[in-house]
Design a protein around this nucleic acid. Structure first.
Length: 818
DNA sequence: CTCGAACGCGCG
DNA sequence: GTACGAGCGTTCGAG
């Protein structure tokens, strides 16, 4: 299959899918009048489709393979297969729970009752499919009551028959639109049985959330969780006025823990499973009419956002294996380090003041703060904007130590340290009025101040203060690593898979993918973590991690977006952008740029995409590079970047003007972010929106492109997995696929994403790994648009632990010589 | 006792 | 007075 075919135009999609004629759209306003006025910024003139009343429902059970095949043929005719599974705890999970003591049961009941949500602990018990609105077929596969599909078979065999038939007739058929509310969930359980839901696909939940965010943001209850209050049931009530049956009520009424304890061949069980597929399809048809009225949304939803829910599903399904032994050893080390830092803090306070302080876990308790500010009376360096409380973050601690070392009472005095004073001047009276030795003029204000500082006595608690602040830096670091990254992760290890299954979502302001429970995207880098937490993540036996990341992705997108000729030239000719910036900064030729100048420039280049300010750059230098720079120096760097790449500030001004008119910005493939603050009278709100206007098309386009790549990977593995199985079944003798290296589920798996990086777990087979490297790199390096002005580069690496990854070329060399 | 705000840290 | 985006653990005090 051609790669590009995954990313066709809406026309391609429409020709693939036979659609029901669109519902007649009844204008609710006087269209002629409305259209005369220019839309206000952020206003979309949506004509909400008029709805017909619900028809009499045709919901039936299917109990034979023949009937299932016949109904799936109907899906081929309508072009729609709206489907849903019901799931229940598997036998092993039930056995485990029933073997527990009453006390343990109480402790684990919540986890037990949630096992149907986890493909490692749950099993599909029911399938429902709808080919058209108001009709659904329910296939009870494994119910303890009522009739089941192909009853003469074992339940496992019956399930296999259902899944195989679905795969063959629907999942691998590009003429049928596969619709599922919460597609990532359906994907996970399909993956459990080795099945992939290939395109075209749709997730109505994504459609209504994404449409509402743009066209009716006031209807979103919680902007941070835009799907809250907008599950299938409330959405169906709001849109169609229909009250769907409640799952928990149904279970309660039947005194059941899981759905498979209720018959699904008739009655309430049948009704409950049938409704989801029916209304899923009705929502699809309804919301697609809305999507068509939002610029590029039908295309973006079908090609990028909805298919990506499958990438989420597959990443959540696999997760990453956790080396519990390694974690155990390192957790103890971390605990020791944290206790040591706490003991040191206690000792400093006790020796100096005779106080027994409670340091807590992170060292930032009221008592410790009281020692610092009430007893030691150390000068604070910065204060919270909201509460006015003295800050003790890394920047503040660095500044406070600097102040103690240099006898400063306020960090604003730092500039006087640079005032040159002739020898002996620290002994003269700064308040007296006399001319400089050898000069007639007065001592300047700055000189007076510098002299005053020189004459100061060191802070009475200088030594203890510095020692305490240094321990505070340590304990904060250890506390974060231990609590968030060691203990916080190991409590998510799945008892069945031994893996950590981080959750993912795309409900972010820029359309980026985020991660939670635990966050799989903020595992500390090895160079910033003495316990090597990345190394607790290991591939399964006989496998390797294959990692591949976009190189300088956002800067390349900035080159595209701004059209900056210098950046385009640099990226096109393999130039060094950081050196180039350094050259403009220093006025020296690139060949004379030293390492330090280059790294200064790097921070500047990096920051410019965020709407760079000298203030933030100063902080970056202080806390990341431990270098103190004046605001002027930082402003010079910012200006140097703007001067070196003139189109960047030009782009930033242009996009602001544009978003003031439109009220939103849009990414490369069409995601829209509203910017209500862009025309605000409040200067802070406005400039904040302006930075977002400039940044979102960059960050959001990076997200779009990454989604597109991961969609292609999902399709590839799914297609290859199906082909490999078909070869076994139908072409065993001809060995039709023998010459090909296929990417097969369980052998080549996409397990994580960190914004500009994908992680795979692959059989440790150099031939296979090379094929994966070539193919994935090819997908990632494909120009995102036909006339994309800069090359896109993706760097591959391989590792037997996450933290031990090596460049692909180095790994290959070693692997092949062993 | 629970819950949320504020703070501070990890990541790209 | 400001970098853009995100999640999670600790601390503390309000309800």
């Amino acid at each position: 299959m051609r790669l590009g075919s995954l990313f066709g135009t809406p026309k391609t999609l429409a020709s693939n899918v036979k659609k029901k004629p669109a519902e007649p759209v009844q204008p609710q306003n006087n269209v002629a009048n409305v259209l005369k006025e220019k839309p206000k910024p952020g206003e979309f003139r949506i004509v909400w489709p008029k709805l017909e009343p619900q028809k009499v429902k045709d919901y039936k059970a299917i109990l034979t393979l023949k009937d299932l095949e016949a109904y799936l043929k109907r899906c081929l005719e309508t072009g729609y297969a709206s489907f849903d599974w019901e799931t229940a705890a598997d036998e092993e999970t039930r056995n485990w729970f029933s073997s527990l003591s009453e006390e343990e049961k109480e402790q684990h009941r919540k986890e037990y009752l949630r096992s149907p949500l986890d493909p490692w602990k749950g099993e599909i018990c029911t399938l429902s499919v709808a080919a058209a609105p108001h009709e659904t077929r329910v296939i009870p596969i494994s119910h303890k009551k009522g009739r089941n599909f192909e009853e003469h078979q074992t339940r496992d065999k019956a399930r296999q028959m259902v899944m195989d038939t679905l795969e063959k007739m629907i999942f691998t058929n590009n003429k049928v639109l596969k619709i599922a509310v919460n597609l990532s969930f359906e994907t996970k359980f399909a993956a459990k049985y080795g099945k992939y839901i290939l395109g075209p696909v749709a997730d109505p939940l994504m459609m209504w959330v994404r449409c509402l965010q743009v066209a009716a943001p006031q209807k979103i209850i919680d902007p941070k969780k835009p799907n809250s209050g907008w599950g299938l049931k409330p959405a169906t009530k709001k849109v169609f006025g229909v009250n769907m049956n409640e799952f928990t009520e149904l279970l309660k009424k039947n005194d059941a823990d899981f759905f498979d304890e209720i018959p699904a061949d008739s009655g309430e069980g049948l009704l409950y499973s049938a409704e989801d597929s029916d209304y899923g399809l009705q929502h699809y048809l309804y919301w697609n009419e809305i999507a068509k009225q939002i610029p590029r949304y039908e295309e973006w939803l079908h090609n990028i956002e909805m298919p990506f829910q499958r990438a989420i599903g597959i990443m959540e399904y696999w997760g990453m294996k956790w080396d519990a032994d390694q974690a155990d050893v390192k957790r103890q080390e971390a605990e020791l380090m944290q206790e040591q830092a706490a003991a040191n803090i206690k000792k400093i306070a006790f020796d100096a003041l005779g106080l027994n302080v409670d340091t807590g876990a992170s060292g930032k308790t009221k008592e410790v703060k009281s020692v610092i500010f009430d007893h030691f009376k150390l000068p604070a360096a910065k204060w919270s904007e909201k509460t006015g409380a003295a800050s003790l973050d890394l920047e503040a601690l660095i500044d406070m130590i600097f102040m103690l070392e240099n006898k400063l009472e306020a960090i604003s005095e730092e500039k006087y340290l640079a005032v040159p004073l002739p020898e002996g001047w620290e002994n003269i009276d700064p308040d007296a009025s006399y001319g400089k030795p050898g000069f007639n003029g007065e001592i300047t204000k700055d000189e007076r101040y510098a002299i005053r500082i020189k004459k100061r006595q060191p802070h009475p608690y200088k030594e203890q203060g510095i020692a305490l602040l240094r321990e505070l830096m340590k304990i904060q670091k250890y506390s974060t690593l231990l609590s968030s990254h060691i203990k916080g992760r190991e409590k998510h290890v799945n008892r069945r898979s031994g893996r950590i299954h981080a959750g993912y979502s795309t409900f972010t302001e820029t359309g980026r993918c985020n991660s939670f429970n635990p966050n799989g995207q903020n595992v500390p880098r090895l160079d910033n973590d003495e316990f090597g937490i990345r190394n607790f993540h290991v591939p399964d036996k006989g496998k390797v991690y294959f990692l591949i990341d976009f190189s300088g992705f956002e800067l390349r997108l900035m080159a595209w977006k701004s059209g900056d000729e210098v950046m385009i030239d640099l990226f096109s000719n393999n130039g060094d952008m950081h050196k180039r910036t350094a050259s403009v900064m220093t006025g020296k030729p690139e060949s004379e740029i030293v390492k330090k100048e280059r790294s200064d420039a790097k921070a500047g280049n990096f920051g410019i995409a965020y709407g760079g300010t000298e203030h933030a750059l100063q902080k970056t230098f202080k806390t990341k590079y431990f270098v103190r720079k004046t605001l002027d120096e930082c402003a010079n760097i910012v200006n140097a970047v703007k001067k070196a790449y003139k189109r960047i500030p030009e782009y930033q001004r242009k996009i602001v003007l544009e978003s003031r008119e439109k009220g939103y910005v849009q990414t490369i493939y069409g995601y829209i972010r509203l910017l209500p603050g862009i025309n605000s009278a409040n200067r802070y709100d406005r400039s904040s929106a302006e930075r977002r206007a400039a940044n979102t098309p960059i960050q959001g386009s990076a997200a779009d492109i990454m989604k597109k790549c991961q969609n292609a990977v999902y399709e590839k593995i799914g297609r290859d997995t199906y082909n490999s199985r078909m070869a076994e079944v139908t072409d065993k003798d001809t060995n039709q696929f023998e010459s090909l290296v296929l990417f097969i589920h369980g052998h080549v798996d996409m397990i994580a994403q960190i914004h500009d990086e994908m992680i795979f777990e692959i059989d440790d087979d150099p031939v296979l790994i090379e094929k994966v490297k070539d193919w994935v790199q090819g997908v990632m390096q494909e120009p995102p648009l036909p006339d994309f002005p800069v090359p896109v580069v993706a760097d591959p690496s391989v590792g037997y632990r996450w933290g031990e990854k090596k460049d692909y070329a180095d790994w290959e060399k070693e692997r092949l010589t062993v």
